[in-house]
Design a protein around this nucleic acid. Sequence first.
DNA 1: AAGCTTTCTTAAACTACCTTATTTTTTTCA
DNA 2: TGAAAAAAATAAGGTAGTTTAAGAAAGCTT
Lengths: 192, 192
Amino acid sequence: MHHLILENIARHISLDQEEINCFINCLKQKKVSKKEFILRGEQICKYINFVHSGVLRAYYLDKEGKQSTIMFAVTDWWITDMFCFINNQPAMLTIEAVEDSIIFQLSKDDLDSLYIKTPKFERFFRIIFQNAYIREQLRTIQNLSLTAEERYHIFLNKYPQVVKQVTQKQIASYLGITPEFLSTIRGGKNRK
Amino acid sequence: MHHLILENIARHISLDQEEINCFINCLKQKKVSKKEFILRGEQICKYINFVHSGVLRAYYLDKEGKQSTIMFAVTDWWITDMFCFINNQPAMLTIEAVEDSIIFQLSKDDLDSLYIKTPKFERFFRIIFQNAYIREQLRTIQNLSLTAEERYHIFLNKYPQVVKQVTQKQIASYLGITPEFLSTIRGGKNRK
DNA sequence: AAGCTTTCTTAAACTACCTTATTTTTTTCA
DNA sequence: TGAAAAAAATAAGGTAGTTTAAGAAAGCTT
């Protein structure tokens, strides 16, 4: 059951059996049904979540009710409201299952102990954050310099499996455009 | 001379004297004049840079010659083309001094050795990347959900010292709008 | 201080993208 | 399976932000 998350970790650091056991003891497995929330409203964000199967989506909800999708997380991804997780603050983001999913949750307290007891996890999350930062920075470049249509095609190429699992409305909110406009972008091109 | 960078590091980890010496030996001090480039074109990005004094700016330059400013770095900030630094690839970003500046450069090789010799640096950069990721993600939310005018005012509040040191054109390219439109935003409001 | 270059301002015409509304298609779940 | 709900398509009219252009102001260089 833990093979996916252990492989994910083994991609960057090597743990011995005791470290593996200690790590696994920190994990809470959770089943989430489609449309169920694992974080919402002003809740404190207690966990960082690894997606074992399914798809989750994190989005910001503004006062007018408009959603801006921050990220989709499919199998093998980590997802949380990072700011609120790190600072133990009420969440800014909502995290919702797009499909029935199985996740492993790691609490802030357990992660802090892990950093002390097994400093290799500092390295692991250093690499995870480094990659997350690079991805997010690339997204900023694209948001600043490309049109919606260009961003859409990049999204299609970069996350082909996500495209199959989420609605057009959700993709639009990731691209920062309305579903109507995404529809015209798509309609204009490859009609089948 | 190294007090600023050492304080920057001491904010997250404690080093003993030997570790400090070892770290300082890795640093290359460099003076950069206004408008001088520390990274451009297809150059390999060899260094991560700490700004001791002055201001640097990193931007993406597209085929049409349009600049998109990724970040400004003032005193006490770290700046590099992270993707290319990590992967030893030709740079996507240009980094230019906005004012005469003094920086400390740490090479990829030295950083990799530091991670091994003094694993506390894994923790240090884990925290640096974590914060960078959170900042960049917040910027994405704002790019997706706010108007240019709202983003401009947030920028003013968040980086008041940067505002004084860079041109309006550079701020516009950070916000993802034209200098002309920034001018009308500013003109509309607080005329003095 | 003069001249050159770059930045800033203003304004009019233009475009990418939004809003609102209606219809069609797909999904949900009793 | 069939009714209700949600998502997608289409279209008309509107707005935030762009483009182009030209003049005014500020920053560099000699």
